[in-house]
């Protein structure tokens, strides 16, 4: 489903923020992406959700080499990926339900057929009272849940979440993780970038650990400490 071979990435003419990244994720897998702040977690996710191109190496998504795919092919791949952005990235002039339904509209699906599904999803993330509200009046946690609902509404084959529990309390965080697990059970491949050790310990999924742009893993437990093996 996702394969990186000797991938490197840099912003402009700066130094590489990712170096020689190699990994492969099977369909239906669930991984945490861990690493200290600045280790390259968001950059790696950007490469997977096609917001950035690798500076070198080969990225293959859904058996398609993204460097040779046409613009339309890339758009079709993006429709198979749901993304929860760290900074939510909601459109403030649209209501909550309009934001959540946007991926369906973009892919040309019928609104009437999907409205019930959108409402159900908003109920599930505890936002049933905010359906017609503007995102501007929501708290950080509520915005986070809208962003999650928007990422999963089109039942993506691959779900990427960048610190999805960073702005919510523990109860909501657990609830969201259960939602991700439920989606994973239904066949969605999940990658969650987080630095919450507690969360990773509670949900026993393999980790991809980034350290200064280099990838360790997949690991089944916490990454070795900096002094480990020296």
């Amino acid at each position: 489903m996702v394969r990186f071979q000797n991938v490197g990435m840099r912003y402009g003419l700066g130094s590489e923020v990712l170096r020689d990244v190699n990994f492969e994720l099977r369909p239906g897998s669930f991984h945490f992406l861990s690493g200290a702040s600045g280790a390259g977690k968001s950059s790696l996710l950007k490469l997977i959700y096609l917001a950035h191109r690798p500076s070198r190496g080969l990225v293959t998504l859904f058996d398609t080499d993204v460097t040779t795919a046409s613009r339309n092919e890339l758009a079709m791949i993006r429709r198979r990926i749901g993304v929860v952005f760290q900074e939510f990235r909601l459109l403030n002039h649209l209501s909550v339900i309009e934001n959540v339904s946007l991926p369906l509209k973009v892919s040309g699906q019928d609104w009437e057929e999907n409205r019930e599904h959108a409402v159900e999803l908003l109920n599930w993330v505890g936002l049933e009272d905010c359906i017609d509200s503007s995102p501007q009046v929501l708290s950080g946690g509520q915005k986070q849940r809208v962003a999650i609902a928007r990422a999963v509404i089109s039942r993506p084959e691959l779900l990427l979440a960048d610190e999805p529990t960073g702005n919510v309390d523990d109860v909501i965080a657990l609830r969201l993780l259960y939602l991700f697990e439920e989606l994973n059970r239904l066949g969605t491949t999940v990658i969650i970038a987080t630095h919450s050790e507690a969360l990773m310990e509670r949900f026993a999924h393999p980790r991809l650990h980034l350290s200064e742009g280099a990838l360790l893993g997949p690991l089944t437990g916490p990454p070795p400490s900096p002094g480990f093996g020296s």
């Binding site: 917001a51 758009a75 993006r78 429709r79 198979r80 990235r89 459109l91 946007l102 991926p103 973009v106």
Partner: peptide, 16 residues
């Protein structure tokens, strides 16, 4: 540009 990038990342075609 922010909204356009969101639409782009959701898989919106350039024509959309």
């Amino acid at each position: 540009h922010e909204g356009i990038e969101i639409l782009h990342l959701m898989g919106a075609l350039d024509s959309y």
